[in-house]
């Protein structure tokens, strides 16, 4: 259920995947939620030698993952995380999926319960292009990175980077690392205070700990 548009040709590692992978220790036990076609999980297995599992909403995606040798089950972040025991994984990854869940806060709580570390990547709804579209056109933002109209978007719970950091605080989760990315998934190589990132970053990757 990874909802970011595909930005790379096959074989190329997506920018945000590379950033996520850099946060995962070699050989870790990993659960990747929203595995899509298994690109990230495959990258992690090959490059970081992880013991990887995946959960993917679409059956087509799951079948593709398993056919490429990955351990993936069909499941739903909103419903199926409750099955896992506490501390089941070293790292739990939720990439570009939180905004599409029914209960993001509950999902976050589950992630922090089953993973010793949690990596979450989210689109930043407060990106300046979105702000401009709302401000000047008075329309819900539609961008290359978030291409859906308001009536057909699977993204039902958007937040800004600031909102997300606030949620982490409420959940008592420590933000160990936060990396701002462009829409294409490239790191934004400037040191800037939070409020700047909240304007210029199209997405961000967070490393959290309970």
């Amino acid at each position: 259920m990874n909802l970011a548009p595909r930005q790379t040709r096959t074989g190329e590692v997506r920018g945000d995947h590379r950033v996520v992978a850099s946060l995962v220790p070699i050989g870790a036990r990993v659960l990747d939620i929203g595995s899509e076609d298994g690109a990230l999980l495959d990258h992690l297995v090959r490059q970081r030698q992880v013991d990887g599992r995946g959960v993917e909403l679409s059956q087509v995606g799951v079948n593709r993952c398993v056919a490429r040798g990955l351990s993936v089950i069909q499941g739903d972040a909103d419903k199926d995380l409750a099955d896992y025991p506490n501390d089941a994984f070293d790292v739990v990854i939720l990439s570009q999926t939180l905004q599409a869940t029914r209960e993001p806060k509950k999902v976050m709580r589950e992630l922090l319960r089953i993973g010793k570390q949690v990596v979450v990547s989210i689109p930043n709804f407060a990106h300046w292009r979105n702000r401009m579209q709302l401000l000047f056109r008075g329309r819900m933002p539609v961008t290359k990175y978030l291409p859906y109209e308001w009536y057909d978007t699977p993204n039902i719970h958007f937040c800004s980077l600031r909102d997300f950091v606030e949620l982490c605080r409420e959940l008592d989760a420590d933000v160990e690392k936060a990396i701002a990315l462009s829409g294409r998934g490239n790191k934004i190589p400037v040191n800037a205070p939070w409020w700047v990132w909240n304007i210029v970053a199209e997405q961000a990757v967070f490393l959290l700990k309970r």
Binding site: V62, I73, D83, Y84, P85
Partner: peptide, 18 residues
């Protein structure tokens, strides 16, 4: 079965085929 395997964090793939 998958639920039971998840409950012990086993290594499991699950595919439902059309």
């Amino acid at each position: 079965v998958v639920k039971a395997l998840n409950a012990v964090a086993a290594n499991v793939s699950f595919v439902e085929i059309e």
